[in-house]
Amino acid sequence: MLLIPCPHCGPRNQEEFAYERSVDSLVRLDDAPGVAMAALYARANLRGEDHEIWVHVQGCGQWLRLTRDRVTHAFRDVEAL
């Protein structure tokens, strides 16, 4: 079970958060079709450290960027968005 260090509320139970998407999936308004396509459908899906966007839905409601190891579940970095 994850104890997610919310930059606004401090460490909170995983149950309060929702995983939104990985950072490499962000589509910008002026992206070319090929770039937007890749952002929608292509994931590095690393077996190791990756960057993710989570929301503290049942806490402060803020968006977070987590750098997290997908094998050990250890957090390296959490930043408010």
């Binding site: 990985s22 890749a38 459908y41 292509a42 994931r43 590095a44 899906n45 690393l46 077996r47 997908r70």
Partner: peptide
């Protein structure tokens, strides 16, 4: 389960999350 990882060894990305 590990398709993303193995495809990554070939430098490819897939529409898959594990």
């Amino acid at each position: 389960g590990n398709s993303g990882h193995v495809a990554g060894l070939a430098g490819l990305k897939l529409p898959i999350e594990s």
